[in-house]
Design a protein around this nucleic acid. Structure first.
Length: 564
RNA sequence: GUACCCGUAGCUCAGCUGGAUAGAGCGUUGGACUCCGACUCCAAAGGCCGCAGGUUCAAAUCCUGUCGGGUACACCA
């Protein structure tokens, strides 16, 4: 039911204005005591040449109370519409009952491919909290787009190219051992890499060796490639543990090395289109007055990040025929993306407008910026483990009889970390603190999961007794149930907005509000009592809240345990 | 220097396609469990919405300027 349009239509008829225009003016009052929908009449004062409050009164007199509303009332220049709580709850719950786990989803994206570039880790480097945002935002968008019918393609654009791999091989050949690398993988590789840099400060020739090994990789030397691919494999294997914990997946791991042979055609095309310019030994593309020029070939003839991103974009367009291509990358790279998006535009491709940089803020520690080299890092693995450990302790204390404690501790602990990351707008910077992620009180993942588990518990208790009863919805004719019903009703729109703005936090916030509303309802009203018909109605509300929370949590990549 | 982003309660943040007394969580203080899961609920205190102009019947929201913080700005990714 589209209440907004129905109200707009009624007002438009009375006022003699366009319904399309009227629907823009319909708003939802901040305070529910002023109505569920409102129409402000200020705007009409100009055309009708009357005082706004007088217009409100005249219009209200002409408007028949719509069938779904209980009351139409004016306050000043506002016409306020009050929905019939009982009817509304019944309508919303029925709708959710019919749609089940599909509630909130749609097919508006049917047939449209959306490429999402996220996580994009570096080979041989540890996964630290700086990688968390891109990973969980990208993963959430992957699920959200899929839920709205789009065909998402998750791409982990691996950082698997560059001289550092030559250096790493040099270090491995000199100081490494197969057993140690097999055993400790990333930390062993990192150790070698750090040692290389320390020793290279004294011994310049090491850098030469590093470059030489990288050249061997480029030239396809068997030994170099074998070691390089081995490093890659070990890194992915280790990182996949974290991806599994987070419930993150990818459809493609085509990274930097994949595009080595795909850049020349781009350079050729830029040349043919007279966009290439020789400047200070390098080749650049001028981007007008708005943007600084972009280098696409270094003076030594080597390609750059932008060249590679161009090649990747063309490959993705050709391979997937994307409707949109998203890059979930920190805002530091804002200029970089604006520049090469502009190049695509100058090349004459209108799909340049379909490329979008989904930027997010930076993560720092309380004592400053993250730095792998200076050892100022927090590994994601440690954060997740601490969260799980803490959850485990709470479970031991509060639900000692719980089955499968390990699974639940993982779902709640990891969920808390993911939920926290997706709780506010992407662009905000984050100062990482254990106190913050390990706080489970208030607006947190565990709070929402707890509400879900509590609903599940109610339904378990009552399942046998109330399933088939006729329902008496007068049990939901109160402000607490109505508040919950309105949030249930608003869920599909929250999902749509999250997708439109590429902002998963809109879903996170919505289910927090829903959980709060449910807890208030639960506190104020006995759910299971001797009146079976009313109990059945209350339980249906609990079932719908449970379903919607579960869907919402799933969309942001968080599990919803039945018990915790 | 130039461009972009951020600036709302002690802290972390919503609200920003203009509308009715600016909201939440944490923290603080004070309450609520013989009762469906207290990882819960209720209440209080706490705000020149960085500052100054402008547009408008109406500005936290739009425009301009300014201050503070962040990021980036040619051969790293």
């Amino acid at each position: 039911m589209d209440y907004k349009s129905a109200i707009a239509k009624a007002v438009a008829q009375a006022a003699g204005i366009d319904a399309q225009e009227a629907v823009q003016l319909v708003e939802i009052p901040a305070d529910a005591s002023m109505g569920d929908y409102a129409f402000p009449c200020f705007r009409l004062a100009k055309t009708l040449h009357k005082a706004p409050h007088a217009i409100a009164q005249e219009l209200a007199a002409q408007i028949e109370t719509p069938p779904f509303a209980a009351m139409v009332k004016t306050v000043g220049a506002y016409i306020n519409f009050y929905l019939d709580k009982k009817q509304f709850a019944e309508d919303v719950l029925r709708d959710i009952g019919v749609q089940g786990e599909k509630y909130g989803g749609s097919e508006i994206g049917a047939g449209r491919v959306v490429c999402i570039d996220y996580s994009s880790i570096n080979i041989a480097k540890p996964f630290h909290i700086g990688h968390l945002s891109t990973t969980v935002i990208g993963s959430a968008l992957y699920r959200i787009y899929g839920f709205l019918g789009y065909v998402p393609v998750g791409i982990n654009h691996l950082g698997d190219w560059g001289t550092q791999f030559g250096k790493l091989i040099t270090a491995y050949k000199k100081w490494g051992s197969r057993e140690n690398i097999e055993k400790n993988a990333i930390s062993a590789m990192l150790e070698l890499y750090v040692r290389f840099h320390d020793e290279a400060k004294i011994n310049e020739s090491l850098n030469e060796e590093g470059r030489a090994w990288f050249k061997k990789i480029e030239d396809g030397d068997a030994e170099a490639l074998e070691i390089f691919n081995w490093f890659k494999e070990l890194t992915l294997k280790e990182v996949s543990v974290i991806y599994d914990m987070l419930g993150v997946r990818f459809d493609s791991y085509a990274g930097e090395s994949f595009y080595n042979d795909k850049m020349q055609p781009i350079i050729d095309e830029l040349n043919e289109k007279n966009l290439l310019e020789f400047s200070d030994g390098a080749y650049i593309v001028r981007l007008g007055d708005e943007l600084p020029p972009c280098i696409v070939l270094k003076s030594d003839g080597a390609t750059l990040y932008s060249t590679r991103d161009l090649a990747a974009a063309f490959y993705r367009k050709k391979t997937y025929g994307f409707y949109k291509c998203l890059y979930v990358v920190a805002y530091q790279q804002n200029l970089h993306f604006r520049q090469w998006f502009k190049i695509v535009e100058l090349m004459g491709y209108d799909w340049a407008k379909d490329l979008e940089h989904v930027a997010f803020g930076m993560v720092s520690l309380e004592d400053g910026t993250l730095s792998t080299r200076r050892g100022k890092v927090v590994f994601l693995q440690d954060v997740l483990e601490k969260a799980i450990e803490k959850t485990r302790a709470i479970i031991e204390e509060k639900s000692p009889g719980l089955e499968d404690k390990d699974t639940v501790a993982k779902e709640v602990g990891v969920g808390a970390v993911v939920f926290d990351t997706l709780c506010s707008a992407r662009i905000k910077d984050i100062t990482f603190s254990f106190d913050r992620v390990l706080n489970f009180d208030g607006e947190t993942g565990p709070y929402v999961q707890y509400t879900h588990a509590r609903c599940a518990s109610l339904l378990r208790r009552a399942e046998l007794n109330f399933a088939a009863e006729d329902k008496d919805y007068s049990a939901l004719d109160n402000t607490e149930a109505f508040a919950a019903a309105k949030l249930l009703f608003g869920f599909p729109e929250a999902v749509r907005r999250a997708c439109e703005k590429n902002e998963p936090y809109l879903i996170t916030r919505h289910i927090i509000e829903l959980a709060k509303a449910m807890n208030r309802f639960y506190y104020e009203h006995r759910i299971i009592d001797e009146d079976k018909a009313k109990t059945a109605a209350r339980l249906e509300l609990a079932a719908c809240v449970k379903q919607t929370i579960k869907t919402g949590l799933w969309l942001i990549g968080v599990s919803a345990p039945e018990r915790m």
